[in-house]
Amino acid sequence: MRRITVFFIVLILSIFELKAQDPEAVYNRYLDLNVAMLEARQYDAIGLAEKIIPDTAMLPPKARVSFYNMAGKLFDDDRQSEKAINYYQKVVKAEPDYYVANRALGYLHLKQVEAAQKKLNGSAGGKQARDEYINAVQKALPYLEKAQACDPSPETLAIITSLYKTTSDDKGLNSLDERLKARAKSCVDILQSQ
């Protein structure tokens, strides 16, 4: 009798597990997430996103990229920079010319630049602090440049220029206009979710 009871418990748990992994259920949660974001229900949206995360592979490819973008935005708004960076990088990997994710990554990495700069200023110019600062700048620049190429902004351009100057990268600064023109030729401003 005990074996039969254990068997049925395992069977019921297996059915629930299969239901949780149903692609249609995952896609329905994705649609619910879209509604929650449209209605600015941040708390609900984060909860839905966290339920979708383990099953993102079940979303259609374009919906998956759109989900990653939404998750990046949610975590960015919730001040969870590392999570936001993780999801925005997935967007850029799938859609390298999507300037919104590039801009978000640029500004998220800029926060790391500012933290590295504070560390550099407080360390009396130590080599390790300088290297960390330069590495942070090098992470931010490609994303900021793509954002600038696709949606020019005097503020972003001033930041990019300042970063090249503070790292003494005259070569990068001198070739900036050329790179921006090349990158401006392939900009995506809307992700397709279907």
Rank of each mutant, 00 (worst) to 15 (best):
L120H: 04
K90N: 08
A147V: 06
K93N: 12
D131C: 02
K165S: 04
P142E: 09
R103Y: 12
K90Q: 06
K93P: 10
H109R: 08
L141Q: 01
A115D: 12
A140I: 02
Y88T: 15
Q148P: 03
Y98P: 04
A84D: 07
T161L: 01
L110V: 06
A116C: 02
A149S: 15
Q128A: 13
I134S: 11
E95K: 08
G126A: 08
S153L: 06
Q89E: 01
K93Y: 02
P96F: 14
A116K: 05
Q117K: 04
A104H: 01
A101K: 14
E145Y: 10
A84V: 08
P142I: 15
V91H: 06
D131R: 04
I159R: 00
Y98T: 02
L120Y: 09
I134Q: 11
L141V: 06
Y87K: 06
G125P: 12
S81I: 13
A94S: 14
G106E: 07
A115H: 12
A129K: 05
N121A: 15
K118S: 13
E132S: 04
H109C: 07
L163I: 12
I159S: 05
G122E: 06
Q138T: 13
Y99F: 15
P142A: 11
K119Y: 09
L141W: 02
S162D: 02
Y88E: 08
Y164N: 00
V91K: 10
G106A: 05
Q128V: 06
